[in-house]
Write a protein that binds this DNA or RNA. Sequence first.
DNA 1: ACTCTCCGTGAGAGCGCGCTCATTTGTGCC
DNA 2: GGCACAAATGAGCGCGCTCTCACGGAGAGT
Lengths: 338, 338
Amino acid sequence: MSVNAQAQAPTLEMVAARAGVSRATVSRVVNGSPKVKPELISAVNEAIAELNYVPNRAARMLASRRTESIALVIPESTSRVFTDPFFASIIQGVAMHLATTDYTLGIVVASEANPDKTRRYLTGGNIDGALVVSHHSGDHSYARLGRSVPVVFGGRPLHAEDNDSVFVDVDNISGSMTATRHLIERGRRNIATIAGPADMPAGFDRELGWRRAMDEAGFDTSLIEWGDFSPASGAMAMRRLLARNTPIDAVFAANDQMALGAYAVIAENGLSIPRDIAVVGYDDDALGSAASPALTTMHQSANELGAVMASTLVKSIEGQDVEHQTILQTRLIVRGSS
Amino acid sequence: MSVNAQAQAPTLEMVAARAGVSRATVSRVVNGSPKVKPELISAVNEAIAELNYVPNRAARMLASRRTESIALVIPESTSRVFTDPFFASIIQGVAMHLATTDYTLGIVVASEANPDKTRRYLTGGNIDGALVVSHHSGDHSYARLGRSVPVVFGGRPLHAEDNDSVFVDVDNISGSMTATRHLIERGRRNIATIAGPADMPAGFDRELGWRRAMDEAGFDTSLIEWGDFSPASGAMAMRRLLARNTPIDAVFAANDQMALGAYAVIAENGLSIPRDIAVVGYDDDALGSAASPALTTMHQSANELGAVMASTLVKSIEGQDVEHQTILQTRLIVRGSS
DNA sequence: ACTCTCCGTGAGAGCGCGCTCATTTGTGCC
DNA sequence: GGCACAAATGAGCGCGCTCTCACGGAGAGT
């Protein structure tokens, strides 16, 4: 297969000849310049339609020095990037927003062989802007990138001096406070948490929110075990919590997957949700609503995060003013498990 | 923010001057031409390193008439494309493969305002190849696209005359036969299915596989209800099945989400999995393994599908011979629910 | 020793478009 | 009716690169 005929794609020149005008005029029409006679506009448009003309992206980039493309930089191991549903949603969200624009998306996994080449690519005029997302809040090594090209970060910067960089984040701290307070309002007192890794903002902040809400209420914060956000790790953490032989009447898990991992262990131990132990998760995964009982959770959308980041970046590329910080709110979804 | 300095990115010309050679030689080195004196190669490489040179993508595209970018065309409504985890995984899989190449990904949602413009874009020399994925097997309206540019389809083509097109598919039929036979081997006889929509290949084929396996064993195929792949629809389908008051000792659900929806209903009715009703799902969702009991399922990966499609397309763009049909195998994962 | 071949290199012509600047055409005013 | 001025259009250069082709020099053959 694939002799890739490709014929001869129509060019500006051909359209111009057909419409009886100059290239410049066609270019003006294509780019919506206001100062072209209406009759010429329609003549050109006709020619465009007849020839099935579409501007050549490469030529346009070269001439205008704008690439209409942005990079999504993910400083994580390749395998991680491409197995984690969080990143899948981010990518989807970014792609979703860009679909409404003329921008194109390139994905860069930064831990690739040649880190320098990555940086050169990013600063070498191949992209109009970059999105940087990582699970690890420490990784703001791309902060300097912002000097040569607009950058939007996903996740709060770790260092104070980064406060001139633009970022979008989900409000993990107040989200987990909300979740924990909800359990407290339900009359629970011995509220455990299955936390995520402390070196990820989502892990660290959600643990922090739980601590704050517990402190606020004057409750003990020793009931904590850590997982890695996988269902299996949630199950193991739950097992360790129960093994303490301390009263536990509620669990706040840092994500739904761990919460559902805990479900199984709670059931194994002959306990009932929510009667004996109330459970609240985080993320509003599709399956939380299908679990039995349906899982109470905090709704947040990586999808939305990606879309907002993309939209912020595009605005900033186009010279509009943008918020330096955008915090996406999460909301509590109460279901049967609490 | 964003005064976008962008300085002056080094050009081929500058590298040439610095290395004391001509542009052509630098170009040869950059593109790995075999016929350049070793000493010049290293001189050029030095200059490249010193200047931090990276080739300008746009210029390269223009001159070489190769864009190094491919389109992922998804003829579905925008909202569908960007909420369905199936597509997220496909995108991720494609991106994963392309990350190992120099290709860039553009996503096109075909139901956009201007279908003609989409087609013109695809045939207008803006991409080197296209990937077409849809849930709806009927949608091979892009078959003709293959004449101007290499195309790889996700999913089996519906029409026989399409058999010269290249596609990659997961083996839904034999996968669901395997799942059903597994239940039969476990001694189940009244095996129901919760099928997916018949206008999607995944729905249609998985239903077909169940029928074949049931026919093969001489069992009755009347125990069928349809859902839309969502957990809620699985629950409703299960409810309808139970309402028939016919003996049911197993359920094969066309995906894990519906299977887990059924879990809840089975529990509500005081039945036990797998003692009273064995359950098998499809897809190997992360949560299936965390459910209680863990869900037996068919493993398949949209991620892999995307990666294989991308790899096939790139090969075909580069003139290599490719399989016209690639069928990805699925495998049974036996867990506690059967 | 002279020509022939071949390999490595350089010169230069585009690729299709945007944009500046000169030119043409049209309009209003004295 | 002639002039100034504005608006609309066209001519042409250059973006950074690839690629063809011509050229120079080294080795081989007669």
